[in-house]
């Protein structure tokens, strides 16, 4: 119980972030701009892709948001291991939960996009399988957390596992696809979006888009952290 009461007194790294509003306004403005400009700007006319190239403003941003949130989770897991503060464990777990949610959205939107450009809901593309394995690794993180009832033990074990899961994510999403051929742009022998397709008009929407979606992820994460802290404080 002493542990629980401490949580309100300690300065949370995200306490101020949750109370300040300027970045939430920025997030809303960027997202509205993304939806409007994302559909109306002129995009490169490319075979196979056609208008689906606009998915870049939505599908790709899900993965950026996921990586940002999972990195936050990793940082707070490591901090928990060094200082054993319960709130750092809460931040790590809620960041991972929100990150996993964005990852699932990325998988589903990617699947829909693949159906209409590559011809199948699921291909044996390295990046698809890598993303799926990453999701399974993080599902195991949730299961692991739910399996341990003791607060401190749960914090330590899941923090150590989180470091492992993050490394697996880096390998399967960022390293492995670059070592072999992939249907995705920018991997294997494929030219990247940045080289031919992502022209300057698209950049004008793409950069605000991924900042907007990432901020939305952070926003949802801060709300989840605050709710979890209340629950811990009330011991429910």
């Amino acid at each position: 119980m002493t542990m629980n009461t401490e949580i309100t007194k300690t300065q949370s790294p995200f306490r101020d972030l949750g109370k300040r509003n300027w970045w939430k306004i920025l997030c809303v403005l960027f997202l509205i701009y993304t939806v409007i400009a994302g559909f109306l700007i002129d995009v490169p006319h490319l075979p196979i892709l056609h208008e689906t190239i606009r998915n870049q403003f939505f599908h790709v941003c899900m993965w950026f948001a996921m990586i940002t949130l999972l990195t936050t989770s990793l940082v707070f897991s490591i901090r928990y291991l060094s200082n054993q503060k319960l709130e750092h464990d809460i931040i790590a777990s809620e960041a991972a939960n929100t990150g996993i949610f964005f990852g699932i959205l990325g998988l589903i939107t990617g699947s829909i996009w693949a159906r209409f450009t590559w011809g199948s809901w699921w291909t044996n593309d390295v990046k698809l399988n890598g993303a799926a394995i990453t999701m399974l690794t993080y599902f195991a993180y949730i299961v692991l957390r739910n399996a341990i009832t003791d607060e401190q033990k749960r914090g330590k074990v899941s923090a150590v596992y989180n470091v492992f899961a993050y490394v697996m994510m880096l390998v399967f999403i960022l390293i492995y696809p670059r070592l072999s051929d992939s249907l995705h742009p920018g991997n294997g022998g494929n030219p990247g979006f940045s080289k031919y397709d992502l022209d300057n008009t698209m950049r004008m929407v793409f950069y605000p888009a991924f900042i907007g979606w990432t901020l939305l992820g952070v926003w949802i994460m801060t709300i989840r952290i605050r709710i979890q802290k209340i629950k811990t404080n009330l011991d429910i």
Binding site: L31, I32, V35, I36, F39, L40
Partner: peptide, 9 residues
């Protein structure tokens, strides 16, 4: 479509 999506967002 833009109108609908903006409303949802």
């Amino acid at each position: 479509v833009v109108g609908v999506l903006t409303t949802i967002l």
